[in-house]
Each structure stands twice: as C-alpha cells, then as structure tokens.
C-alpha cells in the first residue's frame, strides 16, 4: 500500500462518522484515554512524590511547600497531559507504516496554517492558569511575610564552614539550632565572610546569609523533632560539610536547654515564654546540645 493510500485510509478513519463508532474508538475518545492516563500519572506523582520524598515538614511554611507542589501539579498535569495526548495520538494515527525507513516523504498533510480562535483559546487558558498560579503564590507569600509580635529572635551567622546561632537576651550562642514548638521565630541571618544559604528544608524557608547585610525570615515550628540545617549556596572548599543539626522542642525543654547553655533562669524563661518555675536551674536538660562538628549530619 502506498503512502497515499495509507494516508487516505487514515483520513477516512478519522473523518468517517457515518456509523458513529463508539466514543473510545473515535479520535477524540482515543485522545481522551491517553490524556486521562497521563493526567493520572501526573497527579499520582504530584500527590505522592512530595508526600513520600519530602523531609518531614515541621511548620506552616513547610506545609506551604507541600501544598504548592500538590496544587501546581494537579493544575499542570492535565495541561501537560493534553500536549502529550495530542503528540502521541498524532504519532499513532498519522504515521504511515515504515515511514521511518523510507527515503520518500509521505504525502503532504492538510495545509492548516493556523487557527485564530484556537490560538486565542490556548493563550486564554494559559493566561488563566498563570493568574491562578500567581494568586496562589501571592496569597501564600504574603501570609508568610506577616511579622508576629513577640516572636523569638534568633541571630544566625554563617561563616566558612559553620553556622552560629545566637539567642539575644539570653547570652546563649550555640552551634545547634533549638527552636520552641508553636512559637513564631524570626531569624536574622548574616554572614562573616562569603554568601551562605541558610536553609531549613523541613520548614520550607531559605535565605542567603550575606556579609554585612541582615535578612529576616520567619516561620513557626509546629512539629517536634530533629532537622538538619544545610548550606544551600556554594561557599568554598567545605561547603558540603556546612550543615548541622537542630530540633524543635517544647517551650519548657527549650528553656531548659537555654539554661544548660549558660543562660540565667529568668532570661531563659523570658526567651522561652514559660514560667520561670517550670525550668530546672541545672544543666541536666533533656535535650541534647551536641557539640558541633562539621560532619554532624552524617
């Protein structure tokens, strides 16, 4: 069968609507099936990959990351799947057999030079999607920007290749980051030498530590547990080792930890926002204040 005949046969298959074959054997139906499959794959990946792969999220800003990934994936999967469906359907329906090894081209296709309404529709839909993305992004971003009164202040200083955390008002300076649960925190991030990236992955916040500049980021840890602070900005030889452990603890544990680090009980209670009586004025605190070593997370 020549290409010409094959092509006609394909054309007939598409255009012949006389017997009205069942939906799924018509082109639209086949495209729909391919689209459905790809959409399903996309949505499944979009919903389950973050769920299984993201580190255990410990704050509202962390959950924002998860929600954004899921929302965007669910939004984008049908669009991407639509392009795939059209592309693959074209490949299945309009590729004359053995055209891959032929030196002669198949017969010319129909000379469609464009379709104004379709183009406008396409642009319209993508504009709509962009607006949705933008509104989502702006809403979430502005909610993260809100400063809370009485937030715990932590001064973060990066240097080659370690982090130092200072808790103003308590005199505590530490190489591990302890944070009280359910308490807004403001990190004032700076660096001594070069740019570092202060990244709390489980809390979905990140900012660069710039020398001589102070950058503020905020979050409210909600889930107890440990995390790792990793440097996200290439900062020289031992960049790979510039990480250390941290943990979210209860306010009382936090106060005790401050005391164990040398803070006075009153300062610790004020900083941790707990009654002074609930703190044990000894250094036998329950949380670990592991000495910093550069490979701590390993």
């Amino acid at each position: 069968m020549s290409f010409e005949q094959q092509f006609d046969a394909i054309e007939n298959e598409i255009t012949e609507e006389g017997d009205a074959p069942p939906f799924f054997s018509r082109p639209g139906g086949k495209i729909f099936i391919i689209w459905l499959v790809f959409t399903a794959i996309g949505v499944v990946i979009g919903v389950f990959a973050p769920h299984h792969l993201l580190p255990g999220l410990q704050s509202g800003t962390g959950s924002d990351v998860w929600a954004t990934i899921v929302f965007f994936t669910v939004l984008a999967a049908p669009v991407a799947a639509f392009v795939y469906a059209l592309a693959f359907y074209s490949l299945l329906a309009w590729r004359p057999k053995k055209s891959g090894s032929s030196d002669e081209p198949p017969p010319d296709g129909p000379p469609q030079r464009g379709n104004g309404p379709l183009t406008i529709l396409w642009v319209g839909i993508s504009t709509l999607l962009v607006i949705v993305l933008l509104v989502w992004g702006m809403t979430v971003w502005s909610s993260q920007q809100v400063a809370h009164d009485g937030a715990l202040q932590v001064n973060v200083t990066g240097q080659q290749w370690l982090w130092t955390y200072e808790y103003p008002g308590t005199g505590v300076t530490s190489r591990t980051l302890e944070l009280p649960q359910d308490r807004p925190v403001e990190f004032n991030v700076t660096a001594l030498d070069v740019i570092h990236g202060f990244w709390l992955d489980t809390m979905g916040i990140q900012t660069d530590a710039n020398p001589n500049e102070n950058t503020v980021i905020r979050t409210t840890p909600t889930t107890l547990g440990g995390f790792v602070v990793r440097c996200s900005q290439l900062c020289g030889l031992n960049h790979a080792f510039m990480n250390n452990k941290g943990s979210v603890v209860t306010p009382t544990q936090f106060g005790n930890w401050l005391v164990s680090q040398g803070a006075t009980t009153s300062a610790a209670a004020k900083s941790a926002d707990v009654p002074e009586s609930s703190l044990t004025p000894s250094s036998t605190s329950t949380t670990t204040a592991a000495p910093m070593n550069t490979g701590a997370s390993q």
Binding site: I10, L86, W94, R95, P110, W122, V123, S126, V130
Partner: peptide
C-alpha cells in the same frame, strides 16, 4: 509566570504543525 504563556504558544505551534500531518519518522 507570564513567560509560560508565550512558551505555551510554542507548544501549540509544534503540536499544531504535527496535527493531522503525515509523520515521516
């Protein structure tokens, strides 16, 4: 995010060109 609009048009052009063509693989 606006850039994804013209980028989307590029997909439209490519898919639209292939659409109903006879694909020489």
């Amino acid at each position: 995010e606006l850039i994804s609009i013209p980028t989307g048009v590029i997909f439209l052009v490519l898919i639209g060109t292939i659409w109903k063509g006879s694909i020489w693989a």
